[in-house]
Design a protein around this nucleic acid. Structure first.
Length: 647
RNA sequence: GCCAGAGUAGCUCAGGGGUAGAGCACUUCCUUGGUAAGGAAGGGGUCAGGGGUUCAAUUCCCCUCUCCGGCUCCA
């Protein structure tokens, strides 16, 4: 007999060798139906695997990531079986579960192509197989046996994977006619897989390496209920409506032109308005925090980047140098602002008493991103960073970090950005050689970052090996409408540039010392930030950011003269740009969704003309009553102040 | 850069070897009166660009460009 302990602390006796599923059945048949995997003594396992010793057991229902993982991983195997049936001779790479669904990387064979049209066939086959209620069977095998099985099949990808595995840790899973190399866990059978949808087709390099062969990746998702699938597909449809590229076009915020060039955003008047509001807001915040605002040119002599080291590292993949009539003279479009800022630092002598020095610039930079990487406003070739560099002493590093975290959290709070994650990137402990800077400084900087984040109550995930070669960093990430992750703010320690630019300050010992440099952005770039802002708000900006605060809506053209007067006063008030259209059909001009994105609606009819007022409505909140235009202006101003405390 | 798809009116899209279509938007007139979508008439397209095949190409083939979904990359 063995004792099984459950998460609530209760325990029961069972025969040794009982399966998780049987244990679940003994508790309730309903539980057995809803459970997809189990964690046994901390190890996630198939429900059907025997438990041979005393154990703590936690069952995973759909709500748990572990359950979804097993469900989708099993679905990937199911898809593989269907693929093998539809495309005989197909070879398999890897097929994991992901955050939403699963994929499988496959090689259809020389000269063969899988197209979107084929997905329906595979989907049908999957449904057929799932309905057959195939059982997933696990088998532990020796490396030799696994090797023989897959080389017999001619599956070079699987054999490559097996060759790297340790003997004794290899397991195979079989369902129906399909056997796969797999660690598990899996569902007991295909029975719960009721709703199936293959979503898309993409190319993906084998093992994520550009130099390797490109396989075909098939994405899919499955659910235990059709309704859940319908809801997910519905969600994807809804998400598409929030896409900043779509809203940006509808609201005339920005555009792209083939003539200007790909990845080069053109900000239209309304988009520019949003941008300018963000810049002036942040400038105010920065000045209060002791930042000095600087301005530097969009180009720099190629020697500047040779000094910084960027030319050597990125020169070949950048916009190429611009030549001048002067023989041998070359300039580059600036890919970052730091070298310019270093030269500003070097323009004056610095005492230890002057540090930290915080230098900020809304600096437009140009990077030759790969054509396939460009994406709306989130990945462009010309963008404006809300860049700043803190030059400080080593003993100030931690406080500077804290001040930046505080600043970022403050800005995010005002913008109502709650859904972000923070990641600390440290050195690869296996390969400390590739990093610049002393062991001692790295140790301290990594510790400072972690502690600063802790002291600011910032929840972070720590990722070793992700640091830049010049220093550790802390990144803030957000997700877009369909869940893609984008990096916004970043805080990076840099030991490289201070050396290369020979930055110094005079210490209390009257000796020259090397300052540390911190690169930081809050928005990341105005382009990416506005994109995320649009997707977060579906284009319905908060009042203070809205490019149009209000729209004047005369009920009839009879009232146009009065509406015109109202508009004139509002436009002169400098608080808002208004839609200057008093035609009778104004209502018709504005689509429902667009209208809803404008915070205030000013309605003018006979009553208003008589009393010299405007009827004010806040979208989504209803009537605010009649006001004189001047009252409305004051009202808007106070509402904006409520939204943003410009302290 | 790589794999796969797409590009037809301002927008959303249908069509298909023989003179280019719808809805919405736009213009004019009529009608209308507290969050658009009543009526009539009208304007608007080198069917992304360039080469082929053909008596004839927007349609079939090839190349290029751009966009979408991924991969790789992201100072």
């Amino acid at each position: 007999m063995i004792t099984i302990t459950f998460p609530d602390g209760s325990a029961r006796e069972y025969e040794s060798g009982i399966s998780g599923l049987e244990v679940a059945e003994s508790i309730s048949p309903r539980l057995a139906k809803e459970v997809y995997a189990a964690t046994v003594n901390g190890e996630i396992r198939d429900l059907t695997r025997a438990i041979n010793e005393n154990a703590t057991v936690r069952f995973h229902k759909w709500e748990d990531e572990e359950a979804k993982h097993a469900f989708w991983h099993s679905s990937a195997h199911l898809m593989a079986e269907a693929l093998e049936a539809v495309f005989p001779g197909i070879k398999f790479g890897i097929g994991p579960a992901i955050e939403n669904g699963f994929y499988y990387d496959v090689d259809p064979g020389e000269g063969k192509v899988i197209t979107e049209a084929d997905l329906a066939k595979v989907e049908e086959k999957m449904k057929e197989l799932a309905a057959a209620n195939l059982v997933y069977k696990r088998r532990d095998v020796s490396k030799k046996e696994a090797m023989e099985f897959f080389s017999g099949k001619g599956d070079e990808y699987k054999t490559e994977l097996i060759s790297e595995l340790e003997d004794g840790t290899i397991s195979l899973y079989t369902q129906g006619n399909f056997t796969d190399l797999c660690r598990g866990p899996h569902l007991p059978s295909t029975e719960p897989i009721k709703a199936i949808k293959l979503l898309s087709l993409a190319g993906a390099y084998w093992r994520g390496d550009e130099k390797h062969k490109m396989l075909t990746r098939i994405y899919g998702i499955t659910y235990p209920k059709q309704k859940m699938l319908d809801e997910y597909l519905q969600f994807l449809e809804e998400a598409k409506k929030r896409d900043h590229r779509k809203i940006g076009k509808e609201l005339e915020l920005f555009t792209f032109s083939q003539k200007v060039g790909m990845g080069l955003p053109l900000w239209m008047p309304k988009g520019s308005e949003v941008r300018q509001t963000l810049i002036s807001f942040l400038t105010g915040v920065l000045k209060k925090r002791g930042y000095k605002i600087v301005t530097t040119p969009h180009i720099g002599n190629v020697n500047l980047y040779k000094t910084s080291g960027h030319f050597e590292k990125y020169g070949a993949d950048s916009f190429q140098p611009i030549s001048t009539p002067q023989e041998g003279e070359q300039f580059m479009l600036k890919p970052m602002n730091c070298p310019h800022h270093c030269e500003i630092y070097n323009a004056t002598p610095h005492s230890y008493k002057d540090l930290p020095l915080r230098m900020a610039e809304f600096g437009t930079v140009y990077r030759y991103e790969q054509s396939g990487e460009l994406h709306g406003l989130t990945r462009v070739r010309s963008f404006t960073q809300d860049d700043a560099h803190h030059f400080c002493r080593h003993d100030q590093l931690r406080d500077e970090f804290k001040s930046i975290i505080e600043l970022i959290l403050y800005v995010f709070k005002i913008l109502n950005f709650n859904d972000f994650s923070a990641q600390i990137s440290l050195r690869d402990p296996e390969d400390k050689q590739k990093y610049i800077g002393s062991e001692e400084n790295w140790e301290k900087a990594e510790k400072d970052i972690i502690e600063a984040a802790g002291e600011m109550n910032l929840k972070t995930t720590i990722v070793p090996g992700e640091a830049a070669f010049y220093g550790p960093k802390l990144d803030f990430m957000v997700k877009d409408a369909i869940g893609r992750k984008w990096q916004l703010g970043t805080i990076q320690v840099d030991y490289n540039l201070p050396d290369r630019f020979d930055l110094t300050y005079n210490g209390s010992d009257n000796q020259k010392h090397r300052p540390v440099m911190i690169h930081r952005t809050i928005f990341g770039s105005l382009e990416r930030f506005v994109a995320v802002l649009i997707e977060n708000t579906s284009g319905k900006f908060p009042l203070w950011l809205a490019p149009e605060k209000a729209i004047v809506l005369p009920i009839s053209e009879k009232f146009n003269d009065y509406a015109l007067k109202v508009l004139e006063i509002l436009n002169n008030s400098d608080i808002c740009t208004l839609i200057d259209d008093r035609s009778e059909k104004i209502g018709k001009k504005i689509r429902d969704n667009e209208l809803k994105r404008i915070p205030y609606l000013l309605v003018i009819g006979e009553k208003e003309v008589e009393s010299g007022t405007i009827a004010v409505r806040k979208q989504g909140e209803g009537d605010k009553g009649a006001m004189k235009v001047e009252e409305f202006i004051d009202f808007i101003k106070s509402e904006i102040e409520k939204e943003v405390a410009f302290k």
